[in-house]
Lab assay of single mutants.
Amino acid sequence: MSHKQIYYSDKYDDEEFEYRHVMLPKDIAKLVPKTHLMSESEWRNLGVQQSQGWVHYMIHEPEPHILLFRRPLPKKPKK
């Protein structure tokens, strides 16, 4: 599979999560399941490479070739 064609967005966040999206080329996108969110082993098997802790959290129906990921931000110590 062509890992060079996978595009990784910059990371962005809110108060709770860090987010990123990953755009897959058409040949890989056709392998994305339409019935469920992928486990880490499933998206890694497609060639997506990112650190541990990312969760495929949403399917964007109009653009199924874009995978939406998030992971919890580290808890800030209370002052």
Rank of each mutant, 00 (worst) to 15 (best):
S2V: 12
S2K: 15
S2E: 15
H3D: 11
Q5W: 10
I6T: 06
I6S: 01
Y7K: 15
Y7D: 08
Y7S: 11
Y8T: 05
S9L: 11
D10W: 10
D10C: 07
K11A: 13
Y12V: 04
D13C: 15
D13H: 14
D13W: 12
D14I: 08
D14S: 04
E15I: 06
E16Y: 14
F17H: 10
F17A: 01
F17P: 06
F17I: 06
E18C: 04
E18K: 02
R20Q: 12
R20N: 05
V22Q: 01
M23F: 15
M23C: 13
M23H: 15
L24Y: 05
P25W: 02
K26N: 14
K26R: 10
D27T: 08
I28E: 07
I28W: 08
I28A: 08
I28H: 09
K30R: 10
K30Q: 08
L31Y: 08
L31N: 09
L31R: 12
L31C: 08
P33C: 04
K34R: 12
T35G: 14
T35E: 12
L37C: 09
L37I: 05
M38L: 09
M38I: 00
S39R: 08
S39E: 11
E40I: 06
E40A: 06
S41L: 11
S41K: 13
S41N: 13
E42L: 05
W43H: 03
R44E: 04
R44L: 07
R44K: 10
N45D: 09
N45A: 14
N45P: 03
L46W: 01
G47I: 01
G47R: 02
G47V: 01
G47L: 01
V48F: 04
V48P: 05
V48T: 06
Q49C: 10
Q49H: 12
Q50L: 15
Q50S: 02
S51C: 07
S51I: 00
S51H: 07
Q52L: 06
Q52C: 12
Q52F: 06
Q52R: 12
G53T: 11
G53R: 06
W54Y: 00
W54Q: 03
W54A: 01
V55W: 02
H56G: 03
H56R: 03
Y57F: 11
Y57G: 01
M58G: 13
M58T: 09
H60N: 15
H60Y: 12
E61M: 07
P62R: 15
P62Y: 13
E63R: 06
E63S: 11
E63V: 05
P64A: 07
P64T: 07
H65K: 02
H65D: 12
I66W: 05
I66N: 02
L67K: 05
L68E: 05
L68W: 11
F69Q: 02
F69K: 06
R70C: 01
R71V: 02
R71D: 05
P72M: 07
P72W: 03
L73T: 06
P74Q: 13
P74L: 12
K76F: 12
P77V: 11
P77N: 13
P77W: 09
